[in-house]
Lab assay of single mutants.
Amino acid sequence: GSKLPPGWEKRMSRSSGRVYYFNHITNASQWERPSG
C-alpha cells in the first residue's frame, strides 16, 4: 500500500456510498486515486 500525496485523504460519499479522495489543502476532490 502506497501513501497518498500530501494533503489527500480517502473519504466516503454519503449520498452514493462511493469512496473518493479529498485534498484538505486545495479543497480538491476526485474519484480517481491521486498520484504523486
Rank of each mutant, 00 (worst) to 15 (best):
32 E>F: 08
16 S>Y: 09
15 S>Y: 12
21 Y>D: 00
25 I>D: 08
15 S>F: 11
34 P>D: 01
19 V>S: 07
26 T>M: 05
36 G>T: 12
10 K>L: 14
14 R>A: 13
19 V>R: 04
27 N>T: 06
13 S>L: 13
35 S>D: 13
8 W>Y: 01
22 F>I: 06
32 E>H: 11
25 I>L: 10
14 R>E: 11
3 K>N: 13
24 H>N: 12
1 G>H: 11
1 G>F: 07
1 G>W: 03
18 R>G: 04
21 Y>K: 00
19 V>G: 02
2 S>V: 11
36 G>R: 10
10 K>I: 15
24 H>T: 15
13 S>V: 11
23 N>R: 02
11 R>W: 04
22 F>H: 07
19 V>C: 15
6 P>T: 09
33 R>C: 08
27 N>K: 15
2 S>N: 13
23 N>S: 05
10 K>S: 08
25 I>E: 09
31 W>V: 06
11 R>K: 08
28 A>W: 10
11 R>G: 03
5 P>G: 05
30 Q>T: 05
5 P>I: 03
12 M>C: 15
5 P>R: 03
1 G>S: 12
2 S>T: 13
1 G>L: 09
1 G>N: 13
11 R>A: 03
8 W>L: 01
14 R>K: 13
15 S>D: 11
30 Q>Y: 05
6 P>R: 08
10 K>G: 05
33 R>T: 09
29 S>Q: 08
20 Y>M: 01
31 W>D: 05
8 W>E: 00
2 S>P: 12
10 K>Y: 07
19 V>W: 13
8 W>S: 00
30 Q>L: 03
25 I>V: 10
17 G>S: 06
9 E>N: 05
31 W>K: 06
2 S>A: 12
34 P>N: 01
29 S>K: 14
30 Q>G: 03
33 R>A: 10
29 S>F: 15
5 P>N: 02
20 Y>F: 09
10 K>V: 14
7 G>C: 11
1 G>E: 14
27 N>S: 08
23 N>G: 00
18 R>L: 07
33 R>F: 14
7 G>K: 02
28 A>R: 15
23 N>V: 01
11 R>I: 06
22 F>R: 03
34 P>Y: 01
33 R>W: 12
6 P>D: 10
9 E>L: 08
36 G>E: 13
3 K>I: 11
17 G>E: 04
28 A>Y: 10
36 G>P: 11
24 H>G: 06
5 P>S: 04
34 P>E: 02
25 I>H: 11
27 N>P: 00
16 S>I: 06
34 P>F: 02
12 M>T: 13
23 N>H: 04
31 W>L: 08
31 W>M: 05
22 F>Q: 01
6 P>A: 11
26 T>S: 07
30 Q>M: 06
31 W>R: 07
17 G>Y: 04
5 P>L: 05
36 G>D: 14
10 K>P: 08
33 R>N: 08
7 G>W: 06
23 N>C: 09
20 Y>R: 02
35 S>P: 11
11 R>C: 15
21 Y>I: 00
11 R>P: 01
25 I>S: 06
35 S>Q: 12
20 Y>E: 02
5 P>H: 04
35 S>N: 11
29 S>E: 06
27 N>H: 15
11 R>S: 02
12 M>H: 10
17 G>L: 06
7 G>M: 05
31 W>G: 03
22 F>W: 09
28 A>T: 14
14 R>G: 10
24 H>V: 15
29 S>V: 15
7 G>D: 04
28 A>V: 15
2 S>M: 11
17 G>N: 10
23 N>A: 02
1 G>P: 11
4 L>R: 02
17 G>D: 05
23 N>D: 02
2 S>Y: 14
14 R>Q: 12
29 S>N: 05
32 E>R: 07
21 Y>Q: 00
9 E>C: 12
32 E>L: 07
19 V>Q: 06
18 R>K: 09
10 K>M: 15
23 N>W: 02
21 Y>N: 00
5 P>A: 05
7 G>L: 02
27 N>E: 07
18 R>S: 04
21 Y>V: 00
35 S>M: 12
16 S>K: 09
30 Q>H: 04
7 G>F: 07
23 N>P: 00
30 Q>S: 07
28 A>S: 11
22 F>E: 00
15 S>T: 14
17 G>F: 04
14 R>S: 12
11 R>H: 06
1 G>V: 11
11 R>D: 01
28 A>M: 15
1 G>R: 09
28 A>D: 07
23 N>E: 01
30 Q>K: 03
33 R>G: 03
21 Y>P: 01
14 R>P: 14
9 E>Y: 06
36 G>Q: 11
12 M>N: 07
17 G>H: 08
11 R>E: 02
19 V>L: 06
9 E>V: 14
24 H>I: 15
13 S>I: 13
11 R>N: 02
15 S>R: 15
21 Y>M: 00
28 A>E: 15
4 L>K: 07
7 G>I: 03
19 V>M: 08
11 R>Y: 07
19 V>Y: 12
2 S>F: 12
29 S>L: 14
36 G>K: 09
16 S>P: 06
15 S>V: 14
13 S>N: 09
28 A>I: 15
6 P>M: 09
12 M>I: 15
7 G>H: 10
15 S>E: 11
20 Y>Q: 01
22 F>G: 00
8 W>V: 01
32 E>W: 11
7 G>E: 05
16 S>D: 10
3 K>M: 13
4 L>P: 15
35 S>H: 10
11 R>Q: 03
35 S>K: 10
9 E>M: 07
3 K>T: 14
29 S>R: 14
6 P>W: 11
34 P>T: 01
6 P>G: 07
26 T>W: 05
20 Y>W: 06
27 N>L: 14
20 Y>G: 00
12 M>P: 04
33 R>Y: 13
22 F>A: 02
17 G>M: 06
15 S>P: 10
20 Y>S: 00
25 I>P: 03
16 S>N: 11
16 S>R: 08
26 T>N: 05
13 S>Q: 12
8 W>H: 01
8 W>K: 00
13 S>M: 12
8 W>D: 00
3 K>D: 15
33 R>I: 11
36 G>H: 12
26 T>E: 04
36 G>V: 13
15 S>Q: 11
7 G>T: 02
34 P>H: 01
34 P>Q: 01
15 S>M: 09
33 R>E: 10
7 G>R: 02
34 P>G: 01
18 R>I: 07
24 H>K: 13
10 K>A: 13
12 M>R: 14
13 S>R: 06
12 M>D: 04
20 Y>T: 00
3 K>Y: 13
13 S>D: 15
31 W>S: 06
21 Y>S: 00
18 R>M: 06
8 W>R: 00
29 S>H: 12
31 W>P: 03
18 R>A: 06
25 I>N: 08
18 R>Y: 05
28 A>K: 15
12 M>S: 07
25 I>Q: 09
8 W>I: 00
27 N>A: 08
22 F>M: 02
27 N>Q: 13
9 E>Q: 09
24 H>F: 14
7 G>V: 03
28 A>H: 14
13 S>K: 05
35 S>Y: 11
18 R>N: 05
13 S>E: 13
33 R>V: 12
23 N>K: 01
35 S>I: 12
7 G>Y: 06
9 E>R: 07
11 R>M: 07
1 G>Y: 06
12 M>G: 03
1 G>T: 11
35 S>V: 13
1 G>D: 14
27 N>I: 05
10 K>W: 07
7 G>N: 07
28 A>P: 01
19 V>A: 08
25 I>Y: 11
8 W>N: 00
